[in-house]
Nucleic acid binder design. Structure first.
Length: 464
DNA sequence: AAAGCCGCCAACCGCACACGC
DNA sequence: AGCGTGTGCGGTTGGCGGCTT
């Protein structure tokens, strides 16, 4: 509903606020708090609607607001954050204490966009304008296969470089990645408030989906591809933070051609080798000096979904001996391959190998459930390990899926609440758009939607 | 000095979503 | 399930003030 019901009433003031009105509102909220905004104007003696009062408070009267012009550091941060977050002003504002989303939005529209254009940077994609011109209507890369390896490695290393404790650094890293032509584009907020890492993680996920396209990939998708985020509605999880990501399973999976590749990177100074295979379709992580592959004590929750609607979900859970218990009667099998003492120590396990058999009428998708078991008490370095192993596994989930030959869709019914982002392959480069939303321009490759974040944040119980 | 133009920014508008009934 | 209400968000508008002609 667009307009608050009280706005239909007569005699409500609009336009600029007078000092007297400000005083009334400030005094009321200071004394009683705002509570229900719709009742604020009446209680405060204002001829305004609650919505207007709320806006005035948030954007002007709030005591913690920082006034004055933006510093150069703030401007730089906004630019960097915009490269990562797009027009998610509230998310950007959250990284700038004392600044409101409205303020930042105005600054962006009136000043920063112009500055970027003057520097030859497209304010939407944050890429060089000259580079974008070259890419219009073109193929992504003629030598995609060789490019993939370095891209993945670079991406992972960028993730590792980002300092979790410094939003600016994380933003810089993302910005750097964006400037190198990587797509990004999702932020996840979860219970641990580890937003920067989540942001990077999601950026990586999206990057994996959208960038690692073999040459000639454009146009191969004949079906809607979806990348869904959301919390699982499964009742058999005991986790406090249960986020999930569903990656598209398709024979034209953009990552399929990377099968057989090995990606090397380091995780907390531990060399990690990420290998994909074509024969078993079981992506997995391997660690040097793995001495304890059989005893994994951390509680795990693995879930695969056949995605056939009506909430029929193939769920599998694993205990320390990696036994699988299938919680549904549907056909399908899951197999775990998580062989690392490192993972054990992190109390957080990622990894997936799934083999869902389906019929044409019953298309599967991989439903990778990511579970955090002891987020409250983990030291920072261990948390890092969680997140760093996460993107690899997510990518692995996507990689392993390429073997499925059927045309695949996600069921809109099996996981709720959920966030849908549709990878639109009709453009020269992939981009993401929300369902039921007007499509953005064809060059807008870093489009982000706060609604998705909002839903996701809610779904994950975030605090933003 | 006056008119026109332009940029900034506060506020409004419309939409989506959560929630309660 | 459907509806009404409340909240939050991003896009857009319009008034004001400064600058230019």
């Amino acid at each position: 509903m667009g307009r608050h019901s009280c706005c239909y009433k007569q005699k409500l003031r609009k336009g600029l606020w007078s000092p007297e009105e400000d005083e009334k509102l400030l005094r009321h909220i200071t004394k009683y708090g705002h509570g229900c905004w719709s009742s604020v104007p009446k209680q405060a003696g204002l001829q305004r609607c609650g919505k207007s009062c709320r806006l005035r408070w948030i954007n002007y009267l709030r005591p913690d607001l920082k006034r004055g012009t933006f510093s150069q550091e703030e401007e730089n941060l906004i630019i960097e954050l915009h490269a990562v977050l797009g027009n998610r002003w509230s998310q950007i504002a959250a990284q700038l204490p004392g600044r409101t989303d409205n303020e930042i939005k105005n600054l962006w529209n009136s000043c920063l966009k112009k500055k970027l254009r003057q520097r030859g940077i497209d304010p939407v994609t944050h890429r060089l304008l000259s580079e974008m011109e070259n890419n219009i209507g073109g193929q992504v890369d003629k030598d995609a296969e060789s490019k993939v390896s370095s891209v993945v490695t670079n991406e992972l290393n960028l993730l590792l470089k980002a300092d979790n404790s410094k939003p600016e650094e994380a933003a810089r890293t993302c910005s750097l990645a964006a400037s190198q032509g990587y797509e990004m584009n999702m932020i996840r907020s979860s219970n641990n408030n580890n937003n920067n890492v989540n942001m990077l993680l999601d950026r990586f996920i999206t990057s994996a989906i959208t960038n690692f396209q073999p040459s000639g990939f454009v146009g191969q998708f004949s079906h809607e591809q979806q990348l869904n985020y959301g919390s699982s509605s499964s009742s058999n999880t005991t986790s406090s933070s249960d986020s999930s990501a569903r990656l598209p399973v398709t024979d034209s999976n953009p990552l399929a051609h990377t099968a057989g590749k090995t990606f090397d990177f380091t995780c907390n100074a531990i060399p990690v080798s990420f290998t994909t295979t074509t024969t078993t379709c079981k992506p997995w992580l391997s660690f040097p000096n793995d001495t304890n592959s059989s005893s994994i004590n951390a509680s795990r929750y693995w879930e695969g979904s056949s995605g056939c609607g009506s909430g029929s979900t193939l769920c599998a859970s694993a205990t320390n001996n990696n036994n699988i218990s299938n919680s549904s009667g549907r056909s399908g099998s899951m197999e775990m391959q998580s062989t690392s003492s490192f993972l054990e120590n992190t109390m957080f396990a990622w990894g997936l190998a799934a083999d869902c058999t389906t019929s044409d009428r019953d298309p599967p998708h991989v439903h990778l459930n990511l579970m955090e078991t002891q987020s409250q008490s983990q030291p920072e370095d261990i948390k890092w390990a969680q997140y760093l192993s996460n993107p690899t596994t997510l990518m692995a989930a996507s990689l392993q899926s390429h073997q499925t030959s059927q045309t695949l869709f996600n069921s809109p019914n099996d996981v709720k609440p959920e966030t849908h982002l549709v990878i639109d392959t009709t453009c020269s480069r992939s981009m993401m758009r929300p369902r039921n939303k007007q499509q953005q321009g064809p060059l807008q490759t870093s489009v982000i939607y706060a609604k998705d974040i909002q839903r996701l944040t809610t779904a994950l119980g975030g605090h933003n």
